[in-house]
Design a protein around this nucleic acid. Structure first.
Length: 420
RNA sequence: GUGGGUGUAGUUCAACGGUAGAGCACCGGAUUGUGGUUCCGGGCGUUGUGGGUUCAAAUCCCAUCAUCCACCCCA
C-alpha cells in the first residue's frame, strides 16, 4: 500500500522494531562516556557553510561534492553538517569552554548529512556518535581517546574489528613527505590511474590508499610517512603506542591510513570491521591540533573520533549480538462489559501514575481477542476485570508466563504489582 | 559522479506474453469470560511510475524514480 510519498533517497525510517536497538547502543555509548567522564554537547544540525569549507578543506570530497548547502531567506549560506568535529570546536571557541571546568571532554551524537551515492553502510542522512578531547597534546590523551572507542566496541560484544593507527605528522613533516612522494611517484606517472595523477599534485598521500591495482603495486615501495616524522612527532607517536601497550589495546601500525579531512595531524586511527562490506570503517579519528586556530580561536590541540551507527548495527547483526530486550508493558488490562470498561480506564491512569506500564486496547472486546493481544504485547501480567469481579470489588491478576491467576481486591492492585 | 543487479500483497518470494499466487505476518472464529499449540475462514494488490510494442504486458522495449552491490569517498 505505497502511499504518495517516499523517504528521500539515502534516508530511512527507524521503525519500532528497530528503534530499541538504537536506544541500546546509544545507552551503552552514554555509559562509556560516563565512565570516561565525558559530557554531552549538542550543536545545531546546520552551520555556516564556511565553517566546514575552512575546516574540512575546500579540496576535500566532502566540501567539493557532498555538502547539502542552502541559502536562507536573508541570503546566508548554510550547510547541513557533514561531520561533528568542526561544530564542536566552533562551539568550544565561541563559548569559551577552555575556561570552564569539566568542559573539554565532550561527546555527541546525531544525524550527519552527505550527498553521496547510497550503498551498504552509507547513507545521505546517517547517524554518528563521537567524542572530542580539546586542550591537550599529551600522547596519553591519544591513547585514552582510542581506548574509549575500544571499550565501546568491546562492551557491545564486538570481536571482529581491528585497530589501525598511524601518524600523519604535523605540517612540517607533511611537506617533506609530500615532496618525497612526488619525487618517488613521478617516474611511475604512466602507471598511475588518472585520479592518482591529479592526487599526486594536490594531495600525494591519497595515492597511497588508492585501490587501483597498478597504483597499489607502486605504493607498496613508496616511502613511508613514518620515516619523515620530525623528532617531536616521532616521540609522540611512539608514546601513544607505548600507552596502548600498557593498557592492553591491540593495534597495528598502518602507514597508509590517510584521513580525508584536512584538519587532521599526527595520530590517525581507524577501527576496521574485518567482515563488513566495502564500507568497513567502524570508527575513524585523529588529532587536529591546528583546527581551533584555523577557526579563529586560540591555538589549541585536540583529538577525537566519530563512528557511524549504521555500520555498528550491521556489525552487531553480523556477529549476532544482543540488543537487549524490546520494551514490553508490565500489565495488559482486559475488561468485559461497559461498566468494567469505565472502571478499567480509571484504573489504567492509576497504574501508570504509579509507574506501572500498562497496555489496553479498546478495539478488542471479546475475552479471546484481548488475551491474544495481551500475549502479543509481551505483558508480564494480565489484569482481568469483568462484571463478576466488579460486583465483588475484585480483579483477576494473571501471570502470563505460567498461567497462574488469583483474585485480589481492586484497592490492593497497585501495591501488589509494585513489588513484582 | 561511474558501472552492474533488482523493483509483484505488510514482508519473503512465485507466476516470465494469455483470468495475479504461496509461506510468514495480520484480522476473525472454533473457545457467548482466559493467550502462546492446532484447525477453519479472511487478499482487487494503481505488479515502483510514465510511455511504447502487441489482439493480449507483471512478463518485451525505452525513460524515470527507488533500492542493492561495487568504484569513488568515508562513519
Amino acid at each position: 500500500m505505497a502511499g504518495k510519498y517516499k523517504v528521500p533517497r539515502g534516508t530511512y525510517d527507524i521503525l519500532p522494531s528497530e528503534s530499541y536497538k538504537w536506544q541500546f547502543v546509544t545507552n551503552v555509548f552514554k555509559e562509556v562516556a560516563r565512565e570516561f567522564n565525558y559530557k554531552e554537547i549538542v550543536t545545531p544540525i546546520f552551520e555556516n557553510n564556511e565553517l566546514f569549507e575552512r575546516s574540512v578543506g575546500e579540496d576535500s570530497d566532502i566540501v567539493e561534492k557532498e555538502m547539502y548547502k542552502f541559502e536562507d531567506k536573508k541570503g546566508r549560506i548554510f550547510a547541513l553538517r557533514p561531520e561533528g568535529t568542526a561544530p564542536v570546536v566552533r562551539s568550544f571557541i565561541e563559548n569559551g569552554l577552555m575556561l570552564k571546568p569539566n568542559s573539554s571532554k565532550l561527546y555527541y551524537f546525531g544525524p550527519m548529512f552527505r550527498y553521496d551515492r547510497p550503498q551498504k553502510g552509507r547513507y545521505r542522512q546517517f547517524y554518528q556518535y563521537g567524542i572530542e578531547n580539546i586542550g591537550s597534546n599529551d600522547p596519553y590523551i591519544d591513547a585514552e581517546v582510542i581506548s574509549f572507542a575500544y571499550m565501546f566496541l568491546s562492551k557491545l560484544g564486538l570481536k571482529n574489528f581491528e585497530l589501525q593507527i598511524n601518524s600523519i605528522g604535523c605540517k612540517n613533516c607533511t611537506q617533506d613527505y609530500d615532496n618525497a612522494l612526488k619525487e618517488y611517484f613521478t617516474p611511475y606517472l604512466n602507471d598511475l590511474c588518472s585520479d592518482c595523477r591529479k592526487r599526486l599534485m594536490k594531495n600525494p598521500k591519497r595515492v597511497l590508499d588508492c585501490k587501483v591495482n597498478t597504483c597499489k603495486v607502486n605504493a607498496d615501495n613508496a616511502p613511508s610517512m613514518l620515516d619523515y616524522l620530525d623528532e617531536n612527532c616521532k616521540t609522540h607517536f611512539n608514546k601513544v603506542q607505548e600507552y596502548l601497550k600498557q593498557i592492553n589495546i591491540p593495534f597495528k601500525v598502518n602507514p597508509k591510513i590517510v584521513r580525508g579531512l584536512d584538519y587532521y595531524s599526527q595520530t590517525a586511527f581507524e577501527f576496521i570491521d574485518t567482515n563488513l562490506g566495502a564500507q568497513n570503517t567502524l570508527i575513524g579519528g585523529g588529532r587536529y591540533d591546528g583546527l581551533a586556530e584555523q577557526l579563529g580561536g586560540k591555538n589549541m590541540p585536540g583529538i577525537g573520533f566519530a563512528g557511524g551507527f549504521e555500520r555498528l548495527l550491521l556489525s552487531m547483526e553480523e556477529e549476532k549480538l544482543s540488543f537487549g530486550k524490546q520494551q514490553t508493558p508490565k500489565v495488559y488490562l482486559i475488561t468485559l462489559g461497559n461498566e468494567a470498561g469505565a472502571t478499567g480506564i480509571k484504573l489504567i491512569m492509576e497504574l501508570r501514575m504509579n509507574g506501572i506500564s500498562t497496555a489496553f486496547d479498546p478495539d478488542k472486546t471479546s475475552m479471546n481477542a484481548q488475551m491474544k493481544t495481551a500475549n502479543k504485547t509481551g505483558a508480564e501480567f494480565a489484569l482481568i476485570l469483568g462484571e463478576d469481579e466488579l460486583k465483588k470489588g475484585k480483579i483477576i491478576l494473571k501471570n502470563m508466563a505460567n498461567g497462574e491467576q488469583k483474585e485480589i481486591n481492586i484497592t490492593d492492585i497497585i501495591n501488589s504489582l509494585k513489588d513484582k
